[in-house]
Amino acid sequence: MSLRLSDRIAGAVILALAGWYWWVADGFRESFGDPVGPSAFPQMVAVPTAAFALFLIVRPDPDPKWLHFPGVWRQVATLATLLIYPLLIEPAGFPAATFLGAGALSRILGATWLGAVALGLIVGPGLWVLFDPLLGLPLPLLPKG
């Protein structure tokens, strides 16, 4: 019999957030001529959400397997790529940032260095050409000076 901690922790986190959510809503000021006001609906949502979270703490389901090695390292590396990539788009320009982003993801997914660079070289400029001149979505081409 495992402790089924995953569901209990998730339930506890959501319960705490629901409580906080209710409490913050309590501070919204009523406006004149509006019998309901901005706090009623959030508080109405908070109560059942908290109740279901509490149910999760009391009657949790079996735990999933969280860490699949070596998949975890790929997940961490991907997440890092996903978080760094947006920071690069505007300073480095879209084609360069996407070259790095697509190349990194491809390498994480098991491509060779050469394959990853090749994919980045195709995807980076390729998507820019497809979306900016062809489809008319403005994307930053060059680094901001």
Binding site: A102, L105, A111, A116
Partner: peptide, 18 residues
């Protein structure tokens, strides 16, 4: 997948950015 997934992610980024 090593070709497909990066493209899916990048198209998602472009779409949301746009």
């Amino acid at each position: 997948m090593r070709i497909l997934m990066p493209m899916v992610v990048m198209v998602s980024f472009v779409g949301v950015y746009s």
